[in-house]
Simulated scan of single mutants.
Amino acid sequence: MIRHLVLFRLNEGVSRDEPRVTEGVKAFQELGGLIPELEFWECAWNITDRPIAYDFAINSAVHDKDALKSYLEHPAHQAAAGRWREFATWVIADYEF
């Protein structure tokens, strides 16, 4: 199994309640039911307020590298990530477990 973690930081001046952000969150929330390669899917806002903290996180899992590639290339994932490119930056980590 491969764990796929993504941490998002909203760009300066962008707030969680902006329509484009709420639409971006909704797009990610729906991915778990849209992409068959996902074995596990959760996403949520960070609940702590620390200078080093990111704002939003995705924690997901897929079976193997082929499934990860399929997930990353899936049109629904591409569309959701494209929304976030407008208002956030992110870091990822993929590891086997």
Rank of each mutant, 00 (worst) to 15 (best):
E73A: 12
E86K: 03
Q29V: 04
V6L: 03
D64M: 03
S70G: 13
L72N: 07
D55C: 08
E39K: 15
Y95L: 08
T48E: 12
A88E: 07
A27H: 11
D55R: 00
Q29M: 14
A80N: 11
V14M: 03
H74R: 08
R83W: 10
W41V: 03
F28A: 02
A44N: 10
E73I: 07
S60H: 10
A93S: 15
V91N: 01
I52M: 09
P75K: 00
I47F: 09
P19N: 08
R16W: 07
E23W: 01
A67S: 10
G33S: 00
R16C: 05
G82W: 05
S60G: 05
E39I: 03
V62C: 07
R9G: 02
P51A: 15
V62G: 01
G13S: 05
F8D: 02
C43Q: 14
A81C: 02
P75I: 12
A80I: 07
V14T: 03
L5G: 09
Y54I: 00
D66W: 10
E42K: 11
I92Y: 15
E30F: 02
H77G: 10
G32M: 11
G33L: 07
E73N: 15
E42V: 13
Q29T: 09
F56I: 01
T48G: 03
A57D: 11
T89I: 04
I47T: 07
A44K: 02
E73Y: 13
G13E: 14
A53S: 14
D64G: 00
E30H: 10
L68C: 05
R50V: 09
G82Y: 04
N46V: 05
E39A: 14
L5P: 01
L34N: 10
F97P: 12
A57N: 11
A44I: 00
A27P: 07
E37T: 08
F8W: 01
H77N: 06
A81H: 09
R20D: 07
D17C: 01
A80Y: 02
G33M: 01
E12A: 05
Y95I: 06
